[in-house]
């Protein structure tokens, strides 16, 4: 096994605690965003959809959220095995992953808020590359160094611990949601 392979297994093997902690924060962000944005839609849904139909919309939403959370976790993990491959301190993996998820999702959310309307389309497209390059240029070092600062690390680990409870709420709901979507789409 070559040098990189040895590093992979010795320094980069994510523990269950790391994965669950990072995933819990991702789930908290992804599902909460959907729930909050649904509140803007809810009054209009109440105008023309039955409660059962609204429930079905949430079933689609949670199913999509589940995919989204897995994709985000995969993205963050991918960073750990590429960009952050040579960072050694195992204790920093969790805060670093959380920070990366916060920056990734936060930037996407911020841009969605800024460019909502049709008239913003051109601005959205023309500035997109700059936004993400800047996010990467500032975010990557910030993730590396912030994870080393004790009080930030403590806050992020505390967040992960507290976010774990959301897994117990959202994941069973997601399982139910997926069943609902499947049933609705069976011939």
């Amino acid at each position: 096994m070559n040098k990189i392979g040895i590093r992979f297994f010795t320094e980069k093997s994510l523990t269950r605690h790391d994965v669950l902690g990072a995933y819990a924060v991702i789930v908290l962000l992804v599902y909460s965003w959907t729930l909050i944005t649904s509140f803007y839609k809810f009054p209009s849904w109440m105008f023309y959809l039955t409660l059962g139909q609204i429930g079905a919309i949430y079933a689609y939403a949670f199913s999509i959220n589940f995919i989204e959370s897995i994709v985000t976790l995969a993205g963050v993990s991918f960073l750990e095995f590429t960009l952050f491959l040579f960072l050694k301190n195992k204790e920093e993996i969790l805060p670093r992953s959380i920070l990366a998820a916060l920056i990734l999702l936060g930037t996407a959310m911020w841009r969605l808020v800024l460019f909502q309307d049709y008239v913003d389309s051109a601005a959205f497209v023309s500035g997109e590359l700059k936004w993400w390059l800047l996010t990467f240029a500032v975010g990557a070092p910030a993730v590396i160094f912030a994870a080393k600062i004790k009080w930030i690390k403590k806050i992020l680990e505390g967040l992960a611990d507290r976010a774990l409870v959301f897994l117990y709420i959202y994941l069973p709901l997601t399982a139910l949601a997926i069943v609902v979507v499947i049933i609705r789409n069976i011939n």
Binding site: V30, I64, D117, Y118
Partner: peptide, 26 residues
């Protein structure tokens, strides 16, 4: 319902009344 959930709420390209319901895939 799939169009209401996905096209109007989770994954719309534009929405004049609110932001996309899905943060990353949206």
């Amino acid at each position: 319902l799939a169009t209401i959930a996905l096209d109007d709420f989770l994954l719309p390209v534009q929405s004049d009344s609110s932001v996309t319901g899905s943060a990353l895939l949206g």
